[in-house]
Design a protein around this nucleic acid. Structure first.
Lengths: 169, 169
DNA sequence: CTTATTATTGCGAAAATTCTCAGTTGCGAA
DNA sequence: TTCGCAACTGAGAATTTTCGCAATAATAAG
């Protein structure tokens, strides 16, 4: 999607951290970009293998870790599993509804105010630029009834999900 | 520490969610309470086995999951691993310094303001009551130099940590 | 271009986590 | 108290994730 691999900014970032550019990493980065906002490990591996079937799972795990370290991708634990996303130009956070799993993206500036206040009160400097806040979106708030309390599992991580079945063939 | 097991509030919570009280869960809950603020799975399992050596790891995994669902414990991904803590009376959040790993606890009310603002702007109702914000504590901010950028691993999860060695014998 | 250094890779093994299943047992209802 | 349902447990299998290692190849220096 955004930031295809041959990108001087990205290359510089990787090298600045002492990491190296390899063909495998090119494929993996492209896969994450293609998959959009929130990709699971399985989705990434599948996409990677479509291009280069010989890339090992271990390499993908390790690359994801490396990319996280140089903040090229964000890896976030969400309701039962980890979701990856390419770190774009503008910092942002997510509001994810744990009922319909809708995702509202908010600019980092909205949250900056809180962080400034925390700084004033405690002297602590918050550095993360990609937090996920769980809760209820406007629609689900109205159509409420049960939810509150129960902890739902993200559809992508549910064992018997129609979405997942499709991909398994 | 707080909230030892024979506790009507806790029992009610568990049953309200359709979960059951068992001797194993009593031991596990006590272990988490004993271990204090942030316990790893290994620490919990070790503590549990000291009391009841026959409790299986699978049971501990499953119990931790169940307790999380009824919000009796908070499980949080922190720099390379998951840390568990008993959900106490007062909701709170954590500011963790990724340099010295100090932990500043802040009352939930401090963050409520942000959530209210998010509500006003988007209509989204944030429900989480136990977020962890990573960054730099007042001391490490001054003594800075390198850090920024690099992603550190929490001491409890470092493969060759003196802390961990002690326990392994 | 050549060379030395060292991060990276793929493989198989190891470790961690989840799952399956048959037997138990908590607990609500009678 | 007894009964019956369904949640829970332990053991082992299955799966996922990490690790160790020898071979490879990206990078920087000459």
């Amino acid at each position: 999607m955004a930031n295809p691999y041959p990108n001087p900014k990205i290359e510089r970032r990787i090298r600045n951290f002492g990491f190296r550019l390899t063909p495998q990493r090119e494929v993996i980065l492209k896969a994450i970009a293609n998959l959009g906002e929130h990709a699971t490990f399985d989705e990434i591996l599948r996409d990677v293998r479509r291009i280069s079937p010989r890339i090992s799972a271990a390499t993908v795990y390790r690359t994801l870790e490396s990319f996280s370290r140089c903040r090229l991708v964000h890896g976030n634990e969400v309701a039962g599993g980890k979701l990856y996303e390419l770190a774009g130009e503008e910092d942002h956070h997510h509001l994810i509804c744990h009922k319909c799993w809708g995702d509202i993206k908010i600019p980092a500036t909205t949250v900056k105010k809180l962080f400034k206040q925390l700084d004033k009160q405690t002297g602590f400097l918050v550095l993360g630029e990609h937090y996920i806040f769980m809760g209820l979106c406007p629609e689900c708030r109205l159509a409420e009834g049960d939810t509150l309390g129960r902890f739902h599992i993200h559809p992508k991580f549910r064992p018997s999900d129609p979405e997942k079945e499709k991909q398994n063939e």
